[in-house]
Design a protein around this nucleic acid. Structure first.
Lengths: 218, 218
DNA sequence: CTCGTTTTGTTCCCGCGTTCACAAACTCCT
DNA sequence: AGGAGTTTGTGAACGCGGGAACAAAACGAG
């Protein structure tokens, strides 16, 4: 293990592990709600739907937060993971594109409860401006710069039709946004230093269709 | 390359490749719309946002559909990929849970245009029954068996709150559904032979938050 | 205090996926 | 026809992630 120096340099956690930490966090929240104080790697792994060896290895990247022969303290581990992910602080999020999906995202309770705060809803269609969605007023896309500067937004969500997605991304990047979650079914390119994650509903269905077709061929 | 016998046995395509085929398919559709007849692996790769070597290797799992020195015929390759994925045929899909997200999914045009057909919307809340969403009437969750039997549904989408997701999945499996797309933020377990893919909005944001936090530490 | 039990943290190995690099194959021009 | 130029398809090397297996550490009983 990397020696933890006083400079507190962030160890590099494998990407695959980072993707699972939120799953562990949610499982720990559930356990905590059930008033369970302590759990073994086996318990937590099955709650998270993974192998226990993998879970232990994942947690070992964060540090040594368990007790051999005993297991993990649920609340303590939960805090450590939340801190590592960065959801102990609150993140301001801007959503661009208030169609069906944008609506759903704005109303999604899972954001607020996990440290994300929708500070603005933007849409290019000015007939929607002023409309209120999930307690937030829809504003013009041109307000992006001002909002990002005022509220210190680092994360942007794109829920526009595919044609406009690249433009929105470009503008977000120019404003200083460095993390983008893209729901538009198109490839967007950004400069290095900006992270993009893509969620594509129809691709997921197509992957299922492929396997379904293969099952049918037997 | 595996000799293509007359029995036309489906070669096994790596999972990572399967996940990219829909991306290539979309890129090809775009090229085709632009009246581009032929493209090189370099062209298609950049349109799909991947490395050209990876693209060529991916396509090589399907067969040898390009021409050396020339490239790929856009429409021909498009058809081959569509056939391989299984989106030349139409797939019946049932959506359970007509909240904000269920609404958005029902209205999502990307489904219909890619070979997926929403045949039923189901919700446990009977005050919603009869309501019409995207031209489909919302029905009782208890109608699931009948609908699956009648329409030959193989793919189910879960857009319920997390508490109900496992029950919905169990019932889908009992009806004979063998592919599930889960939007509920919870781990669901299914018997082997059933495929589940998970889309979790808040996990994606948390992954971005992690990287964002790391950038800020510098 | 010592021994047995439990469970973590880690090492080692294997397989998958990515990338490089190049031979094979096709076109075009002379 | 032949050679130069292009582009595919694939063999080989490499690195990352997953899983088994085990040593180290804590606890409890006697």
């Amino acid at each position: 293990m990397t020696a933890r120096s006083t400079s507190e340099t962030a160890r590099d956690i494998p990407e695959a592990t980072v993707a699972r930490l939120p799953v562990y966090l949610r499982a720990l929240n559930t356990l905590s709600d059930e008033a369970i104080r302590t759990c073994s790697s086996e318990d937590l792994a099955s709650a998270a739907g993974v192998n226990s060896a993998k879970l232990r290895k994942d947690l070992s990247y964060l540090g040594s937060y368990g007790t051999r022969g005993v297991g993990y303290d649920v609340d303590y581990l939960r805090y450590q993971i939340a801190r590592e992910i960065g959801v102990t602080q609150d993140w301001a999020v801007v959503i661009v594109g208030i169609g069906n999906l944008g609506h759903a995202l704005a109303n999604y309770s899972g954001f607020r409860s996990r440290g994300f705060h929708v500070v603005a809803l933007l849409d290019a269609d000015d007939t929607r401006h002023g409309e209120e969605v999930a307690g937030v007023r829809v504003r013009a896309f041109d307000d992006l710069e001002a909002i990002v500067a005022e509220q210190g937004v680092a994360i942007g969500v794109i829920a526009t039709p595919p044609a406009g997605a690249q433009d929105v991304a470009d503008r977000m990047v120019r404003c200083g946004i460095t993390s983008i979650l893209n729901f538009a079914p198109t490839v967007i390119t950004v400069p290095t230093g900006v992270d993009v994650r893509k969620v594509d509903l129809s691709i997921e269905l197509q992957i299922l269709a492929y396997h379904e077709q293969r099952k049918a061929q037997l």
